[in-house]
């Protein structure tokens, strides 16, 4: 305060220097705020843009997958159901009335056999679109059924175990999770060359978990992220978009023992449990 108590010029100097300091300080603060906020906004915009691009890739993947599914359906109907029905029609032509009774019976029997095969074929197509076990008995039964079928083929040992599944998830969520599991199993069967697949389900700290272990070749999270951003790996992109739909996470990693690959599906418990 001694500085302030001296006469005229000293106070003027303090006044001018202090005010100049204040002006510089305020202007610097304002410029800093503007620049900093611009940088933050630019960063946010870049993230939003990247997210948009990612969504576009996922959308394209899902459209492509849908088209592939339609093509498969069209091929099944055209190549299998079409010829079967055409054959049945041949057996049941107008000349049949002019044939003797034994031939007529033979033709009707053949046609019936073909129609039965066609019914079975249509049923199979329908089941591949929406498994009846999933609709009627839930995710646990559908996954157990799927694993039994895989195990039944004798090429791979597949098992599943649900520890805490007293209440079913919402129907559409069950279907989404089932499709994700189907896609993962499909990939494991196709690419991993593993000798076993094991699925476990449990609930921990408000989260619903599904874990798949296998002993073949697999991918880790960084591979999954890379494939998700690239133009290949349609199935994985589809898994990503499905997981996003149920607000869940999927994590690919190697087991602690570094022997097995582990895929973890995580869902918020409060939302699906209605």
């Amino acid at each position: 305060m001694f500085f302030l108590q001296t006469n005229g010029p000293s106070v003027s100097t303090v006044l001018l220097l202090g005010t100049a300091g204040m002006v510089v300080l305020v202007v610097s603060i304002i410029i800093f705020l503007i620049m900093h906020q611009r940088r933050v906004l630019r960063f946010q915009n870049r993230i939003a843009q990247m997210e948009q691009e990612q969504q576009k890739i996922l959308l394209n993947a899902s459209i492509k997958l849908q088209e592939e599914e339609r093509q498969r359906l069209a091929a099944d109907l055209h190549d299998d159901a079409g010829p079967l029905l055409a054959t049945a029609r041949l057996y049941l032509n107008e000349n049949l009335v002019n044939q003797d009774k034994a031939t007529q019976l033979q033709a009707i029997f053949q046609a019936r056999q073909i129609i039965d095969d066609t019914i079975q074929l249509v049923r199979n197509i329908s089941h591949s679109l929406m498994p009846p076990t999933l609709k009627n008995f839930g995710l646990e039964s559908a996954i157990n059924d799927l694993f039994q079928k895989i195990s039944g083929s004798g090429t791979i040992n597949a098992s599943s175990r649900f520890h805490e599944y007293k209440e079913r998830l919402k129907e559409e969520k069950e279907l989404i999770i089932f499709r994700v599991v189907q896609e993962l199993i499909n990939n494991i069967l196709k690419h991993s060359n593993s000798s076993f697949i094991h699925l476990t389900q449990n609930v921990h700290a408000d989260k619903f978990y599904l874990r798949i272990h296998h002993d073949g070749r697999g991918i880790v999270q960084s591979d999954f992220d890379k494939l998700n951003k690239s133009n290949i790996g349609l199935g994985l992109k589809n898994i990503s978009s499905r997981m996003r739909l149920v607000q869940g996470n999927i994590n690919f990693e190697k087991d602690i023992s570094q022997t097995y690959y582990k895929v973890t599906i995580e869902l918020p418990k409060d939302e699906p449990y209605q």
Binding site: V14, L15, G18, T19, M22, V23, L25, V26, I29, I30
Partner: peptide, 11 residues
């Protein structure tokens, strides 16, 4: 407000 109050502070 900031400019006014801070710059008049020493005065």
């Amino acid at each position: 407000i900031l400019i006014y109050l801070s710059c008049s502070f020493f005065f």
